[in-house]
């Protein structure tokens, strides 16, 4: 009986310890957005002139946030959104004053971000006419 208990205890430890000690065990991490990483975004006016260039972060949970500085005026804003866990994410975000803010309701930062063969790329449109009637155009992006 004592031997049986010892065997069971050792077997239990053998099952339990690898799960505790090995941080790479499956199941220790939730789903990860395939779009996560650091992205370069280039925003352009309708006439092709650069509105702003920005490095935008997409978190492991697919959250989008990046600071942009308008090339002409030097004004700074944030763009935010939610790419989720999709490979091809059609998202609709906003301009805001900080990451985590809900953003300006009338602003728009939307488009598609995609992952293929490890490369991240995307395009879309933006509009922040509440700040300036001319603040609208398109954007392109790639993951660094």
């Amino acid at each position: 009986m004592k031997t049986m208990k010892s065997i069971l205890a050792i077997a239990g430890l053998m099952l339990y310890l690898p799960l505790v000690l090995n941080p790479e065990c499956p199941g220790n991490y939730g789903p990860v957005s395939p779009l996560s990483g650091s992205w370069n975004f280039t925003f352009s006016y309708g006439n092709g002139k650069v509105f702003a260039n920005s490095v935008v972060q997409i978190g492991l949970n697919g959250s989008i946030c990046g600071k942009i500085k308008v090339s002409d005026t030097g004004e700074t804003f944030y763009v935010t959104g939610e790419a989720g866990y999709e490979y091809d994410s059609d998202f609709s975000g906003r301009f805001s004053d900080a990451c985590g803010n809900l953003g300006y309701v009338t602003s728009e930062f939307k488009g598609t971000l995609s992952e293929m063969l490890g490369a991240g790329y995307g395009s879309g449109s933006f509009s922040f006419t509440q700040k300036n009637p001319g603040y609208k155009g398109t954007w392109q992006a790639k993951r660094n």
Binding site: S36, G37, E115, L117, R143
Partner: peptide, 13 residues
């Protein structure tokens, strides 16, 4: 064919 690209996540194509 294909290849491996490692970012935050590893992509094996």
């Amino acid at each position: 064919k294909g290849g491996i690209l490692e970012k935050t996540v590893k992509y094996d194509s």
